[in-house]
Design a protein around this nucleic acid. Structure first.
Lengths: 129, 129
DNA sequence: ATAAACTCTCCAGTAAGTGGAGTGTAAAGG
DNA sequence: CCTTTACACTCCACTTACTGGAGAGTTTAT
């Protein structure tokens, strides 16, 4: 199938699919007369896999790892689980940071009248060394 | 003062400070004989302001906005508060997304034995259309 | 005088695409 | 068969916010 259909069926943009092909994440055949990429069902499945993994916050490189684990019929589930647990702990760290940030910002916002006067505890906090 | 000292006092790297100078976020004078940047106390204060705002997740562009609001003695606190509230709501969205992601990933991880066998519900979920 | 420490500019690269120009190909309508 | 429209191609530049390194000049300390 052409790139447009592959993109639609994997919920990716054409640009993104082309990018994935450029970096070798998928390897569609090329119609030698038209120069159009030809995506097989396997290529499509791969794109769908990548799209999901990206949604799960896996990086492109991690997607590659997952894909190779996926296509390795003798792989163990250990590695996949380890990668997933690592992701979860990254997310946990990020959650803590963001919550902390939110706290600080809402504290500042609550103390700022937000009126037409120049006094602003937010700016004061930013300029306070 | 030289860039090294300015960087140290603002908790930024020399590279980062140079970058901020390159994009015009700070405008240190230049010693015409040595070519070294010369940071005044005001420049330093500005760097410290930026460093804090960046920690608060404000983008470079938002830092510029905040800086101009900061140096405008007739500004109102309204704009600053609005920007801050916007940031908070962005953070809230991000928090929801991340929590959801964490949920899904931990569900998958919990159902994966993580042993030497090839069965892996994580990969199954990724490949499931 | 020399060595270490600091600074400079410039170029390239990072992640993961996005946007656009200019051009070629395929499918549908008349 | 011809034309229009939709789709595809490549290539280059841009995005964010830096970071790394090369090669060269400057300042400070010994």
């Amino acid at each position: 199938m052409n790139i447009g259909k592959a993109a639609k069926l994997s919920n990716l943009t054409v640009k993104t699919v082309r990018y994935y092909a450029d970096i070798g994440l998928v390897k569609p055949l090329k119609n030698s007369s038209s120069g159009y990429r030809d995506f097989s069902e396997d290529d499509l499945a791969q794109l769908q896999f990548i799209a999901k993994a990206r949604k799960f916050n896996f990086s492109i490189q991690e997607c590659e790892e997952l894909l190779s684990l996926y296509s390795d019929k003798n792989r163990s589930s250990k590695e996949v689980k380890a990668l997933t647990l690592e992701k979860i702990s990254e997310i946990d760290t990020k959650l803590i940071e963001l919550k902390d940030l939110r706290h600080q910002l809402s504290f500042l916002a609550n103390n700022c009248k937000g009126n037409d006067r120049p006094e602003c505890p937010i700016l004061d906090a930013l300029s306070d060394v």
